[in-house]
Design a protein around this nucleic acid. Structure first.
Ligand SMILES: [Mn+2]
Ligand SMILES: [Mn+2]
Ligand SMILES: [Mn+2]
Ligand SMILES: [Mn+2]
Lengths: 220, 220
DNA sequence: AATTAATTTTAGACAAAGCTAAAAAATTGT
DNA sequence: ACAATTTTTTAGCTTTGTCTAAAATTAATT
């Protein structure tokens, strides 16, 4: 598989991730920052290799083989993102471009060892789940902290209130996007929540809890 | 710079590393596992970009600009090799193929942070020196332990005697290629040498000391 | 010095991945 | 239902890096 083929496969995967119908040529072209005619050429090639199902003018969808290829690239992409953030102190928003390159390195041993080195993470720094070697992964759901039961765990991926004041508050309390939190206790009385963070556990008010989104990965 | 251009530049660097004359087309072709005609084409392109000095039929040499490009790729290659061995537990001899890919990842930040993460190593797992950002490096020399004064430090890169018995002995004493050793003391009486290893210090007989090569990097 | 041999370059072709412009098919609006 | 619009495909061209076969140049041998 060439680098370009891999990026197309990944693009098709992401475009059909939710609306699982077939993907339009123009949509792929936009995603890949290229022209529709180039997409048609590539789609034909991928169809030859039976990585996609394709009929002229009918759009395209991944074959099972193609889906597994996509997931293996996504696995690599997300593992590298974890590496960049956890080990090299990259910040949350810098990692994507670099991972876009690293995901194409060809070595199964490398990815196995990287996975082990990182402690077999289940999610990447953006809260997206990391498929295992066989392409199996647990879909994550985005929820407000206030909606979660005790014991839930997830990666902080977004805010409702993006005012400067709120972001400042987060900073002061060492809460950052990409951090993993666990719900330790919920105070019935005022709806405040105790969560564990990297730097110990803290209690946050209901107001905060209704403004922070976590990406939840169901524990097996 | 494309991946292919980078590999050619590196090949030319290595071919002129010691005999610093100009490099023959056929030599490059052999190194790059390609045909001489392809080399001519590429050399013309590199010459256009003034990365090499080239006159028809006269061979090729790196320009100063080309030399710096070569060293920056070599820096990346060797840093990744250190990463693979030190952090991912690859063995000495598995890393080259993977580093051959990783060296082409484009991100200055990545290499800076990787360098820091690894503790600014001076040599790679094969004892070869790692150039700094400006392409400066201290050339290493391969010497027998028995030829070194107290205080010397280097990476174990080879053996004289490769008998099974000797290799078994090394294994038992936790001496492996790629390990860094320091000469602590030399016993005049019998020529035995005390060296520090990862797992403490050990004394080795003169016989062993005349069979183990270290790659020495002069300390600044 | 002349011939032979080896090396290097050129000419022409090919596969990958992209582009533009034009044609074909599908969709939409009336 | 049919014209207009949008989407998709085709045809033909470009660039990068490779190849083979032939020509040009340099090196080696007699
Ligand atoms: Mn990519
Ligand atoms: Mn991500
Ligand atoms: Mn390489
Ligand atoms: Mn090396």
């Amino acid at each position: 598989m060439t680098l370009s083929e891999e990026d197309y496969i990944k693009a098709i995967y992401h475009l059909s991730e939710f609306n699982s119908t077939s993907v339009a040529t123009n949509a792929i072209a936009e995603q890949m920052q290229t022209k529709p005619s180039s997409v048609t050429d590539m789609v034909k090639k991928l169809s030859e290799k039976s990585l996609v199902n394709y009929k002229k003018y009918q759009g395209v969808s991944l074959s099972e083989k193609g889906r597994l290829v996509a997931l293996s690239i996504i696995r690599k992409h997300r593992l590298w993102e974890v590496f960049l953030v956890d080990k090299l102190n990259f910040s949350w928003d810098e990692v994507h471009v670099v991972a876009e390159q690293l995901e194409h390195i060809k070595s199964d041993t490398l990815i196995d060892k990287l996975d082990a080195h990182l402690g077999y993470p289940k999610v990447d720094p953006h809260g997206d789940p990391i498929p295992n070697k066989d392409g199996v992964f647990t879909k994550s759901i985005k929820k407000l902290i206030s909606e979660l039961p005790v014991g839930s765990q997830g990666v902080c991926v977004g805010v409702n209130d993006s005012s400067a004041a709120f972001l400042k508050f987060l900073d002061k309390n060492k809460i950052a996007l990409g951090d993993t939190f666990k719900i330790l206790e919920i105070e019935e009385f005022d709806g405040s929540v105790t969560i564990s963070t990297r730097s110990g556990s803290i209690r946050i008010s209901k107001q905060i809890a209704t403004n922070l989104y976590l990406d939840i990965v169901d524990e097996e």
